[in-house]
Design a protein around this nucleic acid. Sequence first.
DNA 1: TACTATACTTGAATTTCGTTCATAGCCAAT
DNA 2: ATTGGCTATGAACGAAATTCAAGTATAGTA
Lengths: 306, 306
Amino acid sequence: MVELRHLRTLAALRDTGSLVEAAERVFLTQSALSHQIKDLEERLKCSLFIRKTKPICFTSAGQRILALADGVLPMIRNAERDIARLAGGETGRLHMSIECHSCFQWLMPTIDRFRENWPEVEMDMASGFNFSPLPALARGELDLVISSDPQPINGIAYQPLFAYEILLAVSNQHPFARKTHIDPEDLQPETLICYPVDRNRLDIFTRFLDPADIDPQIRTAEMTVMMMQLVASGRGVCALPNWALSEYLERKYVTACQLGSKGVWSTLYAAIREDQREAEFMRDFLDTARETSFNTLNGIRATPKN
Amino acid sequence: MVELRHLRTLAALRDTGSLVEAAERVFLTQSALSHQIKDLEERLKCSLFIRKTKPICFTSAGQRILALADGVLPMIRNAERDIARLAGGETGRLHMSIECHSCFQWLMPTIDRFRENWPEVEMDMASGFNFSPLPALARGELDLVISSDPQPINGIAYQPLFAYEILLAVSNQHPFARKTHIDPEDLQPETLICYPVDRNRLDIFTRFLDPADIDPQIRTAEMTVMMMQLVASGRGVCALPNWALSEYLERKYVTACQLGSKGVWSTLYAAIREDQREAEFMRDFLDTARETSFNTLNGIRATPKN
DNA sequence: TACTATACTTGAATTTCGTTCATAGCCAAT
DNA sequence: ATTGGCTATGAACGAAATTCAAGTATAGTA
C-alpha cells in the first residue's frame, strides 16, 4: 500500500513546498509525482494535502505519513549504509578539489558527518586558482571536484548536488539595498569585486552582465572575507552564491540583492570519474552532501524589500 | 535500493525458514522470491543468507536487514491503520461465527488486539453446531465465518488465515504415544471422539480414514475439554488441530501423534462477503489474525519420538 | 478584461520492473 | 540410481511507474 517511494515524495514535498521542486529533488518529473500522489490518495481513500496553497498544507492523514517518513527513512538510510560497509567497500580514497572558493559552509559539515560513517576512507582536499582540477580528476589524481559548470569530458560524470542563487552583496548603506532587484544596467557605474579567475567562468558575467553588454569596473580579491570587507566599506559590490553569503547576511554585515527579476540560479555539481559512480562511499558522500546542504542552506535568500 | 517488499520477504523467510513457505506467506511464487532476493543481493553486492541449510541462516548483512524490517514494518502497519481510521471507515460491524469450536487459542488474542485499534467497530460472536453460518453470512446477518473448507458461494470470498496440522491426541500411556506416526489402519480398533457434526465435514475422515476405508467406533463430545478428559483417561483418541491441543500438550495432559508419514495439513479460512473485502477494519482484522496466530501457534507440533 | 506566467492535472504512450511459467540443478534420503 | 523437496534460471508476459504532451486553473500584470 504505502511504499518507500511515497514517503520520499511526501518528505520532499514538505521540504520544498511544491510539486515541481519536490520532483526535482527525487529525480522525477512533476507529472510523475502528481500521478504517484493521486494513486496513493485513491488507495488510502483520503487526500494528503491541500493543493493550491503557497506552501503546501498537509491534511492530518498527510501529517501522519510524514511522521512515518521521518521515522522510517533514516532507518532505511542507516541500514543501507551499514550494509554497504559490510559489503566490503568500507575503504577507499576521496581526494577532492573545490573550484568555488567558499564551499565551506556546507562542505565542512558534510565531511564531518561523512567521516563518522566511513572512517577508513582516506580524505584530502586541494584548492587553488591556477590549477585545473578536471584533467587531474580524469587522470585519477583527484576523485571529486565541486564545480558549477559541467563541461562534458569522457569518463567524467556530473552529479547534481543542489541549486543555489547568485546574490549581489552590497553595503548596508548602498542605494541597491532598498531595491527589490538589480538590473544589469544598474551595475555599470559600480565596482565589481571578483575572484581572480577568467571572467567567463563567473556566472555574474556569463549569465547576467554579458547578455546585457554591461562591463563595470573590476577589482579582484582572493578570499571571501576580504571581499566582504571591501563590500561592507562601500568599496564595491560582489556576486556570490547564497550559501557563501549566509554568515555575513545573518550578522547583517552586508545586504544581498536579487539579480534580475527572476534571480540568477545555478546548480552545483560533483564531478566524479564514472567508475567511481558505483562506489558506495561515494554515493553516500553525495547523499550526505545533498542532505547537509539542504539542512544548512535552506532559506538563505536575498533580504526581502518590504 | 531496499524496498518494503524486500523487508517483508526477508521477515517471512526468517519466520518460515524456507523460500517455499515464505513465498506462500507473502502470496507470491517461490520463483518470484528467488529473483527478488537475487536482485537485492546483487544491488547490495553481498549475500543475505546461506542457502541449503535446514533453517535458513542469515549473514550479518541479512541480520542487519532483518533488524531494519523489525523496526520499519510495524511502523508502516501502524501508520496505515491510523490512516485507514482517519479516512473515515473507523466504524463498522463485525459479527462472526466459528465453525470449529476451539479457535479461542488464537482468536481471543486477535480480538483483544483488534479492539484496541478499532474501538468503534461493533463486534459479536456466535457459535453453534446446528446452525449453518454461510447462508447467514451471504444474507448479511454475519460478517465473518471461520471455516476450514471453503465451498464456493456467490458473493463470498475466502481469505486464507494460516495452515495447521491435524494431530491425534492420545493418552500418555497409549502405545501410539511411542510411534513416530499413526497409519489409518492403526485406528480401526480405537474409539474416535468427535464433535457431533456430519462426518464429511471432519478432516480426519475425509482426508485420512475414508481414503483407506477405515471406520473406527465413534463417540461424540461437544466440548474440547470433555474430549481431553476422555482421551486422557484412555477412553478413546481424538483428532484436533494443533492449536486446539496446544495447552493440553504443554501441560503434558495428553500426547499428540502425527497422522500418516506426512502429517495431515489444512488451512483455516475467513469467509467474508465480497463487498467487505475492501473495508479497512476487515483487512486489519485478518492481518491481525494472521500475525497473532503466527506468534502464538508457532511450534505446536506432535511431540517428536526421539 | 484579456494576457502571461506558473503550478498542477490528466490521458495516452512507453519503458521499466516484477512476476509467472517451465525447466533445470542440487542434495539428501531411500 | 531414483525420488522428492528445495532453490535457481531464462524467457515471456503483464502490470506498474514514468514520461510526454496537452489541458485546466489561478494569480499577477498590463
